[in-house]
Design a protein around this nucleic acid. Structure first.
Length: 417
DNA sequence: TCTGGGGTCCTAGGACCC
DNA sequence: TCTGGGGTCCTAGGACCC
């Protein structure tokens, strides 16, 4: 059987662990730039705060209901996630970490209900994070079990094992609540009179395949208890890596944009080196604020192919700036920019080029390694390329940032007695 | 009037996930 | 005034090959 362990309101829960005064109080966590709501405690959900809602539209609601607002603190959430996952790993050697707040586990126990409740209690006691656990034969069914556990079970655990319970659960689940069925597929399905997961299992499979794709077909089979989505316990290297940001203030100035793009390029290189890959293609994009109808709109993007795959800061920055020069247009105020590196290959499998213009690539590799080492010890961007700039007034807005309780010694929790 | 039967690779766009 | 930041996979269509 497969268990899906999912942290409840993960970001909101992370913030609350270190603020026990906020127990049972409504909390929301905002996206970068304090833009949208991306996590809500149950109390905030009950007040009607929607996922993805722009924060400025809800300002009054926040104030009126005394909702505590946090800027996003990924350092904290990442570290808390690691702690939760390490506990899960100790409980099952077959584990797939699916996202920052959820994991699939294979479980072989006799008494699954008991197993789930114990695991849940352990995670809660050791980390403070509440989780829900759903157990079933396939991943898609485990997702459904988890949803029921989270919404309706006080124990936070639910096992879908017997056929009549599965059928009841499927009849109880609308198509749009199935993992892998998004807004568009759900709309189409409903137009055909298919409303629940149970309905979906009654349809002819060839029709599903023809009308949608094998992806949907696999989901349907999973609903029937046939395993189509394997547990992927191995770490998979990313095939694309993207670093992009919206700016706190729009930017018109080319040089400022160059600083931002250079910094994003360096972030991409760091991620490339971390997973030991090199990029053969780099794409950059810049665009104006699409939400401002009074503004002239522009979306510029350009990709550059590299003869020689690399993860070197200097080279990637150079290429990124080349691309930026080609797409930059004067007179627009840009709201967002980003760098994407793709066509990734392992760093020990890079094809050498007979006509390579850069001599001594090894020297570059050494420099990158040294920079990584120093910055790992001394802090991000302590050592940087000059084009990354110094004043950083394009930085994002984060007005309600909580301390990094678990990763910075000078921000550790203080207790007054 | 009638125009074959296999393939591969690449890209853009659309769907989905957290 | 103020609207996030990452990813994956599949398909259709176009280009090419013999």
């Amino acid at each position: 059987m497969i268990a899906l362990v999912d942290c409840n309101n993960f970001y909101a829960s992370c913030e609350r662990i270190f603020r026990p005064d906020l127990e049972r109080k409504p909390i929301v966590v905002l996206s970068n730039n304090d833009g949208c709501v991306i996590a809500r405690s149950n109390e905030a959900k009950r007040l009607g705060i929607q996922m993805g809602e722009p924060a400025f539209k809800k300002k009054e609601v926040f104030q009126k209901n005394d909702i505590k607002v946090f800027s996003t603190n990924f350092v904290l959430y990442g570290d808390m996630s690691k702690r939760v996952m390490s506990i899960l790993r100790k409980n099952s050697k077959d584990i797939e970490i699916y996202s920052i707040d959820e994991a699939f586990l294979k479980c072989y126990n006799e008494d699954l209900e008991n197993y789930a409740v114990n695991l849940r209690d352990k995670v809660k006691q050791w980390t403070g994070i509440p989780v829900s656990i759903g157990i079933a034969k396939t991943k898609v069914l485990a997702k459904i079990a988890n949803r029921i556990a989270k919404k309706y079970k006080k124990s936070g655990a639910f096992v879908l094992d017997r056929q009549e319970i599965i059928e009841k659960a499927l009849k109880f689940t609308y198509v749009e609540d199935i993992w892998g069925i998004g807004r568009n597929y759900a709309k189409t399905l409903r137009e055909y009179g298919i409303h629940t997961a149970y309905d979906l299992t009654c349809i002819e499979e060839s029709w599903i395949k023809r009308k949608f794709s094998v992806v949907v077909l696999k989901i349907v089979q999973e609903l029937k208890g046939i395993n189509c989505l394997e547990l992927e316990s191995e770490y998979k290297k990313k095939k694309n890596i993207c670093t992009s940001r919206s700016f706190g203030q729009p930017i018109s100035d080319y040089n400022k944009l160059k600083e931002a793009v250079s910094t994003f390029a360096v972030r991409c290189c760091e991620k490339l080196r971390k997973q030991k890959t090199c990029a053969s293609e780099i794409r950059i994009f810049i665009y104006t604020n699409p939400f401002n109808p009074r503004q002239r709109q522009y979306y510029g993007t350009r990709s550059i192919k590299l003869d020689h795959a690399t993860n070197d800061n200097h080279i990637i920055i150079q290429e990124a700036i080349k691309a930026l020069k080609l797409i930059y247009k004067k007179g627009y105020s840009y709201k967002k920019a980003g760098v994407i590196v793709g066509k990734l290959i392992n760093d020990n499998e890079v094809q050498l080029s007979l006509f390579d213009q850069i001599y001594n690539r090894e020297k570059y590799t050494k420099i990158s390694k040294t920079i990584d080492k120093i910055n790992n010890n001394m802090g991000r961007d302590k050592l940087r390329i000059a084009t990354q700039g110094f004043d950083r007034n394009w930085k994002m807005k984060q007005e309600q940032l909580s301390p990094c309780y678990t990763t910075r010694i000078d921000e550790i929790l203080t207790v007054k007695i």
